[in-house]
Design a protein around this nucleic acid. Structure first.
Lengths: 330, 330
DNA sequence: CTGTTAGCGCGTTCAC
DNA sequence: GTGAACGCGCTAACAG
């Protein structure tokens, strides 16, 4: 058996046929062009025995498309984005596409670089969770060929189809329940409040606060700034308590990471977690269910986001805006 | 400003130069070939104003390599593999490579399909966490060009460089500590015992068991079979208790998923988690730290695995075997 | 220092 | 039914 890579030309040569004939068979157009059954059989036998593979680079060059889509997210290690990617990859497999992935690490420079690298590679589509409002000039001359969809972070006026979770409704429902159970005594800690998704979570919390008739006081929302680290949550808790703030009956955090830091700080100060503290959070982890505390969690539907984003991946698509419902657990 | 894609030919044409000259400048070899500074400046000005980008498909076709490496893992949504991918992507960024990713969903058929798709796309390297012992014929005719490294699952005799965690030592140390604290009263629940990584964890547990002088009884290891689901952990716990087994002082689980199911079952049966139950597990989650129980966790060093795998990614490399230490937390 | 040219493997068009 | 020939954009060898 031949050990070199087998190209279509080589098959043709080996069988004494022309490349056209071989390709028509390989592309399933044998019937249409009335290739003789004998020839057809010979070709099929040969490729079966030799693991013939088409050269994708040549194909891309000729067809000006690559059967590849790109995904750029802030951090592939973040479980939300990891699940999103896994779901997107599932969509791709069904259509024989492959996924090229890159992390921006929340750095607009790296993001632009990743996007350029992907466009260089003639991706047919790009799913982007941008760390800033994307600069349209990055894509300008590609828009005819490559479809762009924004996910998770809906910067208004970006001009691209966008698919996001309904963070606002999720947060509102979460806060409604928590405020009812906690008699209105809740505190919302957040990081990265500049992100559209976080902004929506804050808005939802404020709406529930007003609905609960607490509008005479401003909603207690503490903003920890740009970095979503455990340290941010810890800092907010410590600052609140040191300012003489009371321990609330319900604590809501804008991310699991903030929650982690907040719980650490509470445990450090109080010796243990106050078991009657109600916890509200976004996204979830399996072990959250085993805390002694009552926990409410808003979880996003990564599969639905991925599928919708995939469906919107059409060149020249209008800038639609899809909002995927969240589910509330606990 | 031109809105079409700008190719090297077009730049040359627009500037009245030859493609060679343009290319030498673009590839940073201007100095070496003594391109005149004036010409050089003209070219650089032009490309700056036009966002010129090289066509990677053409480049790959010509060079027979794609500056792309492939990653195939059982499940991209699994946090361990997600972190591994994030780290591998970091290695790639440093060398201007991109990552093509695919999940096998623990299905050898899908795995083979993904690998073939990647090889079709002329990847320069492949990092594979195989769900079975890989069939060498999949790669046979590519080995000269594409480097293959196996990670996480070391099937002996595969013939490829392999990078895995030191699951055996990690498990041994974990069990040693847990057995000491629990007076030898421990139970090990596992799923997917056929995987090399899980097998090593079992072996480590057994070694610690023998070391602790408990060798007169067989080590209490319960095997839940092939599927790593919460249900598996729950089933093992229920079966153990219904057989009249006592609640052990220490419970070790081969994965977080098994632990999740086991804890669910315990809570369902006992009304709450027994707070003095010692827990041992592999991999970790932030919220695990806030369980009322004492928890010991063996965590893998995804960054080190990724870096080592990346370093071993050389065509025709000898089948080395790297074992990366784990860390024990708790 | 710069220009010309021949493929890389595939898909398409047109001729036989 | 089948074959020949061109070009996608780039690189490398060689020719000035």
């Amino acid at each position: 058996m031949d050990t070199s890579l087998t190209t279509i030309d080589e098959v043709a040569q080996a069988l004494g046929l022309s490349v056209t004939t071989v390709r028509l068979v390989l592309n399933g157009q044998a019937a249409r062009y009335r290739i003789s059954p004998g020839t057809r059989q010979r070709i099929e036998d040969y490729v079966a025995g030799h693991q013939v593979m088409v050269n994708h680079a040549a194909r891309s060059l000729r067809l000006q498309r690559s059967e590849t889509i790109g995904l750029v997210v802030p951090n592939l290690g973040n479980p939300f984005f990891a699940r999103l990617m896994a779901e997107l990859e599932r969509c791709c497999q069904a259509r024989n596409l492959m996924l090229l992935t890159a992390s921006s690490h929340e750095d607009p420079e790296l993001e632009a670089r990743a996007v350029r690298q992907l466009l260089d590679r003639s991706i047919d589509g790009l799913v982007l969770a941008p760390c800033r409002k994307p600069a349209p000039e990055l894509f300008a001359r590609h828009l005819a060929r490559v479809a762009v969809v924004l996910v998770d972070r809906a910067y208004p006026g970006s001009g691209f189809p966008t698919v996001v979770s309904d963070n606002r409704a999720g947060a509102r429902e979460l806060a409604r329940r928590l405020l009812a159970e906690a008699g209105g005594d809740a505190l919302f800690l957040c990081a990265q409040a500049a992100l559209p998704s976080i902004r929506d979570r804050i808005r939802g919390f404020r709406e529930a606060w007003a609905e609960a008739g607490l509008g005479d006081r401003p909603a207690p929302v503490l903003d920890g700034g740009a970095s979503d680290l455990p340290f941010t949550g810890a800092r907010l808790v410590n600052a609140h308590l040191e300012r003489g703030g009371a321990l609330p009956r319900a604590l809501v955090c804008s991310s699991l990471v903030v929650l982690e830091g907040a719980l650490q700080a509470l445990r450090d100060r109080l010796g243990r977690l106050p078991p009657d503290l109600l916890i509200g959070t976004f996204d979830t982890e399996a072990m959250l269910a085993f805390l002694p505390n009552r926990v409410l969690a808003v979880v996003q539907d990564e599969a639905a986001i991925a599928q919708r984003a995939f469906a919107r991946l059409q060149p020249g698509a209008r800038p639609t805006r899809d909002v995927i419902p969240c589910r509330l657990f606990g």
